[in-house]
Design a binder for these strands. Structure first.
Length: 696
RNA sequence: GGGUGUUUAGCUCAGUUGGUAGAGCAUCUCGUUUACACCGAGAGGGUCGGGAGUUCAAGUCUCUCAACACCCACCA
């Protein structure tokens, strides 16, 4: 077929992809050694962004490369239900039509979410197709599919029975806007200019103690003042009582090493129900825990009436005003401090005393740490192992319950006296309850759902239909490599390793390739508010998938963020064009595009030379692929194709097409070598290579 | 407070075990009667962030300082 003047990528990409998909060539072809990658599931309602384009390009390169080597390859695709994010989107939509989820009720709301999922859920998969991602779509999974939901229940019940999941009343990070607990990882610490107020707590007519605080409003929940046991300044006050202003309560002055004589006034107010450190102090000294906030972080009925129902920041102002009037406000110091914000809601997080489900991550962390130490799982680049150890070795209990509606509802059922029964099904819970109470009782399921990352933690085996013993589970677990960005090492990578080690007795992937993030041309993070987002779909329309993929690959050097600008993509467009034109030229000169050639009988020097160069390149590429050095792969290919193959080889044979002695050999070797070039570029540039291969 | 990364040509970045500084883009010069101006040939351009050390030899190893970026921890 005569090649057109230009590669019509928009038309050909579409045709080629649907042909690939229809011919089932993305399904594992039985026979070879297994090679598998579990695709990090994007949010089901999401849209392809530049980070996706990068990570999925890398994965597709690896997948296509190993598929071409004849391995049995699985790229497991799917999407994540993304609890909070999705629920927020749907709630926002409801608000637009003046509805809210509470008036709708849980069941109706969840229906709405499923509707929304149905409406927008296919979008990201189709965008992945445009990128050329060769995943086996017939195996696509969603974290809330029946099978995966059953896996979630089974894991929960097993971990509960093993004492790793438990329910506890303790301080959690409470998001007063989303009205749910969130995990430590979902809290973002922001530097803020704040104040440290010095406040006088009277002891008797003459004496007082001055405490310093950044949160005066919480003094309504104070149950002690702490000083350091060795602090000479306050030694004689230990054991005495002071008067808590406004509340007018006697609270003890206690000795605790938490009080730092160097900070503030050296004496610190203790609010055990609203501060993580104070909570520990409260437990050590058996103090009273007074909860002064409701779920909206407004003051509740445990405070004097004039403060009730005030927002926490309003309360702060009023407290300060009152203290000032009482001449108890000594001074205000401005200082830099760090305030916790919810990463989704953007409001200040409140430590709040609630009942939540926790997972003992410490116990689960032991095996993954060992796996990395003995190299059964390797981070690439290696420096991430330190980050991993650092976090894993200091890991805190993981709060896994969320006060949301969209997600996996916790498989625990409560009897009339709040005794709970954990089991995979209601029937089983009823049996347990019957045994416990001696009669049938009505049970109600825990209303909370699990953290989104709980189900994603099971992704590597739940998608292979665990707990069923399937061919795929046996063949493809553990995966060869996990490809992801460093931003979800803790959220996701570490947790997959925990769950994988526990339930599969083996970490879920051998290599963990951590790629950098994509930034704009100035090195700034892309964000809506900065308006510097580069839309991959736009680039796909303008330059084609091959060019975008090659650009990303070429810019991808380890240890440095990718600075992307349209100019770079534009630059690599000419490379795509160069390949096309080389094909056109050889076609014009009647090269013979054969897939097989006998190398031994070749006599023309340039032919001998290019074959050797080609072999050398292949050897190098094999090694570089093992090391995940994608930028070097791209640059080697670029240099070979452009300068070695086109500038030298083609220029030489140009002069010899008429040479009787060599002409036939040149036609054969040039055709054959070009086919080899197409094979080399195919993992990175699947469309143009396939198009040329079919046309020539 | 703990940790990580980066600093090399105008720009974006390579530089494996220490052995004469590289690429792409940009700039300049010349060229194009058989692919491609999304082309070819060539040229200019760097005291490799500062300082010290090890060595016959340091962009590369050690120490130190600085700037920038990021991660973790801490609401007195």
């Amino acid at each position: 077929m005569q090649l057109d003047k230009f590669f019509d990528f928009l038309k050909d990409e579409k045709n080629l992809y649907s042909q690939w998909e229809q011919s089932n060539c993305f399904k594992p072809q039985k026979g070879g050694e297994p090679y598998s990658i579990m695709m990090p599931p994007p949010n089901v309602t999401g849209s392809l962004h530049m980070g996706h384009a990068l990570t999925f390009t890398i994965q597709d390169i690896l997948i296509r490369y190993h598929r071409m080597k004849g391995m049995e390859v699985l790229w497991q695709a799917g999407t994540d239900h993304a609890g909070i994010a999705t629920q927020m989107v749907v709630e926002r939509k409801l608000n637009e039509s003046n509805l809210d989820r509470r008036s709708l009720g849980r069941e109706k709301f969840i229906e709405k979410v499923w509707e929304w999922k149905k409406e927008s859920g296919g979008q990201i998969s189709n965008q992945l197709r445009r990128l050329g991602a060769s995943t086996d779509w017939s195996r696509e999974r969603f974290t809330m599919d029946e099978g995966l939901s059953n896996a979630v229940k089974k894991v929960f019940v097993n971990l509960f029975n093993d004492g790793i999941i438990y329910k506890d009343k303790r301080l959690v990070n409470w998001d007063p806007k989303l009205l749910t607990a969130i995990s430590d990882l979902e809290v973002e610490q922001r530097d803020t200019e704040g104040s440290l107020w010095h406040i006088e707590y009277p002891i008797d007519e003459k004496n007082h103690i001055i405490i310093a605080t950044t949160r005066p409003e919480t003094m309504l929940g104070d149950t002690a003042v702490a000083v350091h046991p060795d602090d000479e300044k306050y030694k004689n006050l230990i054991g005495k009582f002071c008067n808590l202003p406004i509340s007018n309560k006697k609270i003890p002055i206690i000795a605790d090493e938490y009080a730092d004589p160097e900070k503030g006034s050296g004496a610190v107010k203790i609010t055990p129900a609203h501060d993580f450190n104070d909570f520990e102090v409260g437990k050590r000294h058996d103090l009273e825990f007074i909860n002064i906030f409701d779920e909206n972080a407004k003051l509740n009925s445990n405070v004097p009436e004039e403060f009730q129902n005030l927002d926490r920041f309003e309360a702060r102002k009023l407290i300060l005003k009152k203290l000032d009037e009482m001449n108890l406000l000594i001074k205000e110091e401005k200082q830099q401090m760090v305030i916790p914000y919810g990463d989704r809601s953007g409001v200040v997080i409140e430590p709040w005393l609630t009942d939540q489900w926790f997972c003992d991550a410490k116990k689960l962390s032991v095996d993954p740490i060992l796996a990395v130490k003995d190299n059964s799982s390797k981070f690439i680049p290696k420096q991430w192992e330190n980050t991993f150890y650092n976090w894993m070795e200091n890991i805190q209990p993981w709060c896994i319950s969320r006060q949301l509606w969209w997600g996996h509802q916790i498989p625990a059922w409560y009897g009339p006296d709040n005794k709970y029964f954990v089991s995979e099904t209601l029937e089983e819970a009823q049996n347990q309850a019957k045994e416990f109470y001696g009669k049938d009782v009505e049970l109600r399921q825990d209303e909370d759902v699990l953290d989104t990352w709980f189900s994603s933690a099971l992704w590597t085996f739940s998608t292979l239909d665990w707990p069923n013993k399937t061919y795929e589970l046996d063949k493809f677990y553990p995966g060869n490599v996990l490809v992801t960005g460093f931003d979800i090492i803790f959220f996701w990578v570490a947790r997959m390793m925990m769950m994988g080690s526990y339930f599969m007795k083996e970490t879920p992937f051998k290599d963990i390739y951590i790629h950098p993030l994509i930034r704009d041309e100035k090195g700034q993070k892309m964000s809506k508010s900065k308006g510097n987002i580069i839309d991959p779909l736009e680039l796909l329309d303008k330059y084609g998938a091959d060019t975008l993929r090659f650009t990303l690959t070429a810019l991808l050097n380890p240890g440095r963020d990718v600075k992307l600008s349209e100019a770079r993509v534009k630059g690599y467009k000419s490379f795509t064009n160069k390949i096309w034109n080389a094909g056109k030229f050889l076609q014009l000169n009647n090269s013979i595009f054969i897939d097989d050639i006998s190398i031994d009988s070749i006599i023309f020097d340039a032919n001998k030379w290019i074959i050797k160069e080609l072999n050398d390149l292949n050897t190098q590429l094999d090694q570089l692929t093992k090391k995940y050095l994608f930028h070097e792969i791209a640059n080697k290919i670029y240099h070979f194709v452009w300068h070695t193959y086109c500038d030298w080889y083609i220029e030489i044979i140009k002069q010899n097409f008429e040479n009787e002695k060599f002409a036939y050999e040149i036609k054969k070797v040039s055709g054959w070598t070009f086919i080899q070039v197409l094979k080399i570029i195919h993992p990175i540039m699947p469309f143009i290579s396939e198009k040329l291969w079919r046309s020539l």
